[in-house]
Amino acid sequence: MGGNSILKRIFMPRFPSIGGCSDQMADSRVLGIDSRGFQSDLNWWRLIPSPIPVFKTLVLISSQDPPGHDGNEAVGVKGDKYRFHIYGEGEKNTTWRFGAPPNYDVVNKLFEEDRSKEWPSGSIEEKVQNLVKTFEMELFHKACLDDYKTINSQKFTLSINGGRSMSVEEVGKIGGYNALLQTSLADRLHAYNPYTETPESSDELFRTTFPRGFALEILQVYSGPPVIAYKFRHWGYMEGPFKGHSPTGKKVELYGVSIVEVDDSMRIEKLDFFYDAGELLADLLKGPILEGFEYDTSPNSSLGCPFLKGM
C-alpha cells in the first residue's frame, strides 16, 4: 500500500465542528490504537515515505529534539516521547493557545529524573499515563475545542471532588488550572481563587512558580477500559514566586485518584478527579512574603484565617 493511501486511511474521518474551528480531526488510529482501545506500537508509521514537507516546519518549531529523534519521524510520533497529537499532518490546522506547539523537553527531564516508577513499554499503566499526559497537553495548549483528539467532545464532562460536571466548552473558557482548582470554600479562604483568575493569568502564575513544569506519573491502574481508575502523582519544584510568596526551591507534590470513562476509540467521555488541592497550595504559601508585596490581611482575606497564618 502506498504512502498516500495510508495517510488517507488515517486522516479521512471528520467530526462536527465546535467552537468555530477547523472540523478536521484525526480519528483514534493516529494514536496507533488497536482493537482493544489501547495504543499499539505505532510501527505503521515506518511505511510512510520520509521525509515529507511538514518536517521542515517541525524542525523550526522545536528548538531541541528529544534523544533518539532525528527530525524525520512520522505523524503522531515526532516531538515527544509521552504525548501525541502535537506534531504531524493531523495538527497542521491546530490553533495553539501560545502560538506554537509546546515543547516538553524540560518537564520530561524532570519526569525521568524524579519518577518513582518506570512502566514497561506497552503496559496498561504506560498507555493510561500517555493518554492522561496527552489530554493535559490539549487542555492547556489547544485553543479550539475541535482540535482535541483525546476526548469525545459531544459527551465530555469534568468534575472535581464530586462537584458539578463541567462541559468541555466551559473548561476551555475558564482555563485548565481554574477548572482543576474548583473549590466550595468561601472566597475569604481561597489561597488561589479560580473564579477571579483568567486562563492567561493562571497560566502565567503557575509557569512562573514551576519553571521546570509540573510532572505527572501514574502510580497504579486499578481497572481497565471502558472505566479506568488510577492513582496519580503530580510534582514540581517551587523555583518561582506564588501570590507574593518567595520561592522555596522545594519539591511540591499532589497525589490523587481519577475515574475515566472512555468510548470504543479510547476517547474520554467522563473524567472525575479526587484530590486535596490544599495539599498543593499549602506548600506554595510556605515561603516568606516578598518585600514590597502588599497582602490583604483583613478578616475577610485568606490570611485572616488562623490556619493559613501559620503556614
Rank of each mutant, 00 (worst) to 15 (best):
Lys142Arg: 15
Lys142Val: 04
Ala143Phe: 08
Cys144Met: 11
Cys144Ile: 14
Leu145Cys: 10
Asp147Ser: 13
Asp147Gln: 10
Tyr148Gln: 11
Tyr148Asp: 12
Lys149Gly: 13
Thr150Asp: 07
Ile151Ser: 05
Ile151Gln: 04
Asn152Val: 05
Ser153Val: 13
Gln154Ile: 02
Gln154Asn: 14
Gln154Asp: 15
Gln154Thr: 11
Lys155Phe: 07
Lys155Met: 10
Phe156Gln: 03
Phe156Met: 08
Phe156Asp: 02
Thr157Gln: 11
Thr157Ile: 07
Ser159Tyr: 00
Ser159Ala: 11
Ser159Leu: 05
Ser159Thr: 06
Ile160Ser: 00
Ile160Tyr: 02
Asn161Ile: 01
Asn161Ser: 07
Asn161Pro: 07
Gly162Val: 02
Gly162Arg: 03
Gly162Phe: 00
Gly163Gln: 07
Arg164Ser: 14
Ser165Asp: 15
Ser165Thr: 12
Ser165Lys: 10
Ser165Pro: 05
Met166Pro: 01
Ser167Ile: 05
Ser167Asn: 07
Ser167Arg: 00
Val168Tyr: 04
Val171Tyr: 06
Gly172Leu: 09
Lys173Tyr: 03
Tyr177Cys: 07
Tyr177Ser: 08
Tyr177Leu: 08
Asn178Leu: 01
Ala179Gln: 04
Ala179Gly: 04
Leu181Thr: 08
Gln182Gly: 10
Gln182Ala: 14
Thr183Ala: 08
Thr183Ser: 14
Ser184Arg: 03
Ser184Leu: 12
Ala186Asn: 14
Asp187Glu: 15
Leu189Gly: 09
His190Cys: 13
Ala191Gly: 10
Ala191Thr: 15
Ala191Ser: 12
Tyr192Leu: 04
Pro194Gln: 08
Pro194Asn: 09
Tyr195Met: 05
Tyr195Leu: 08
Glu197Pro: 05
Glu197Phe: 06
Glu197Met: 07
Thr198Phe: 01
Pro199Tyr: 02
Pro199Asn: 07
Pro199Cys: 08
Pro199Phe: 04
Glu200Ala: 09
Glu200Cys: 01
Ser201Ala: 14
Ser202Trp: 04
Ser202Ala: 15
Asp203Ile: 09
Leu205Ala: 13
Leu205Glu: 10
Phe206Val: 14
